[in-house]
């Protein structure tokens, strides 16, 4: 068996996941892309079990199981969060979620009062 085949598969899948996370506007699609990345990780873990002389056999597969559960838990909470956002805004476009506070509404004349002094 050539381990490089599943490894490269995993690498490409991870890359696709990254691309998806960055490309998609819809939060659910973003989550799907994340799933791709997580699965790539799992594939690496499972493949690793075949390539390494591990101190503990099947650690990779165990880890992969844990990751699947972890992902399920996260997706559960994540979807709840996304739905909460949808309830409040009727949209799940991540582009509408700002990182910074809204642009300052104060006029320049007021600024020395609060900010500079």
């Amino acid at each position: 068996m050539r381990p490089v085949i599943p490894y490269v598969t995993a690498a490409l899948l991870f890359g696709l996941g990254v691309y998806g996370v960055l490309r998609r506007r819809n939060a659910v699609l973003v989550l799907m892309a994340v799933e791709l990345m997580l699965n790539a990780v799992n594939l690496v873990l499972v493949t690793a079990d075949t390539t390494v002389k591990a101190a503990l056999p099947h650690s990779g597969q165990v880890f992969a199981l844990f990751v699947i559960v972890l992902a399920a838990a996260e997706i559960g909470v994540g979807l709840a969060i996304v739905l909460q956002l949808y309830r409040l805004r009727a949209s799940v476009t991540v582009d509408d979620v700002p990182l910074a506070e809204p642009a300052p509404a104060v006029t320049p004349a007021e600024r020395p009062e609060g900010a500079v002094r």
Partner: peptide, 29 residues
């Protein structure tokens, strides 16, 4: 940008993994 980062990480990882494992062969456990 997404293509750059995604492609970069995917291909980069692939290169690294190929570099590490080459065309080696293992027996299935």
């Amino acid at each position: 940008a997404a293509a750059l980062v995604g492609g970069g990480s995917g291909l980069g990882l692939a290169v690294l993994l190929i570099d590490a494992f080459r065309w080696s062969r293992v027996d299935l456990p």
